[in-house]
């Protein structure tokens, strides 16, 4: 009886914990603003409309698409500001996927910060393509269209991930290095597989030492000493390992510890 009660109690407790964590996650998602304008360049109606648009695109791609616009960087490099914003606010799902376009109007600088799944989708090429379409609107102070263009560009690349720039599916080429690797491993397996059978034919070996003829109990160590001579200390500089992504020129550790990609520029 007691065991049944305990099981019921544990089941209820686990159910509560799951509910609380799901609700917590949902409320965290609900709190995310997809369009952040600290400059007052967009009207409340525009922000509301654009936020809903980016929220929908984010949900359909399971990857946050966030636009942030501030007056000044206050001396912080624009890439750092973008990564920090990402780490503190952005990230969809367990992989924390997302892309942030961080703009400082006062400094005339922008930076993309990508993470999770978006890190592998948005290489320098994709970021620069989006930037080339967004920057003209920033230069003409048409921020409403800039946000829309950014959202549509990010949505396009997320929808077409795995395809080339013309929209065709990227053909996965088989690496020719596999042929010699397979041949080499096959040859080694052949030698190992037949090695045992070949060795079984040889049974004549020279004896190493005369261990079979040591008189039992005769081994005595009468002198066992250790004498310290000297010490040498060497040092090497510590290195922090970072994942390398050849097509992404800015892999960086963010303030919150995440790894981000993306490009930056001026307008």
């Amino acid at each position: 009886m007691n065991k049944r009660l305990l099981r019921s109690f544990l089941a209820v407790l686990m159910g509560l914990m799951i509910t609380v964590s799901v609700l917590g996650a949902m409320s965290a998602r609900a709190a995310l603003s997809y369009v952040v304008d600290e400059t007052g360049s967009l009207t409340q109606e525009q922000i509301k409309e654009l936020d809903a648009r980016l929220a929908e695109q984010s949900a359909s791609n399971q990857c946050d698409i966030v636009f942030v616009m501030v007056n000044s960087l206050n001396g912080v490099p624009v890439e750092t500001a973008a990564d920090t914003y990402y780490d503190n606010n952005v990230g969809y799902g367990a992989a924390n996927s997302g892309i942030v376009l961080y703009i400082s109007l006062g400094d005339g600088e922008y930076a993309f910060s990508t993470g999770g799944y978006a890190y592998s989708v948005f290489s320098d090429y994709e970021c620069n393509e989006i930037a080339s379409q967004v920057v003209p609107y920033l230069q003409s102070s048409d921020y409403y269209t800039a946000v829309k263009t950014f959202g549509d560009g990010a949505d396009y690349y997320l929808q077409h991930a795995g395809q080339d720039q013309t929209g065709a599916a990227v053909e996965k080429k088989h690496n020719p290095i596999w042929a010699p690797i397979a041949a080499l491993v096959g040859a080694i397996a052949g030698w190992i597989g037949t090695g045992g059978q070949k060795a079984a034919l040889k049974s004549v070996h020279q004896q190493q030492g005369a261990q079979n003829y040591v008189r039992q109990g005769s081994f005595q160590v009468t002198d066992a000493r250790e004498q310290y001579l000297y010490s040498q200390v060497t040092r090497t500089r510590r290195q922090t390992e970072q994942p390398n992504r050849p097509t992404n020129s800015r892999p960086s550790g963010g303030g919150g510890g995440g790894v981000h990609g993306g490009t930056s520029g001026k307008f």
């Binding site: 040591v214 002198d223 000297y230 040498q232 060497t234 090497t236």
Partner: peptide, 22 residues
């Protein structure tokens, strides 16, 4: 924070004794 250090200490080890073979 900056460096990895490796200290190698060198010793002279002495062993003496006996062993019989038949």
């Amino acid at each position: 924070a900056q460096w990895n250090y490796t200290e190698t200490s060198y010793f002279q080890v002495i062993r003496g004794g006996n062993l019989s073979f038949d």
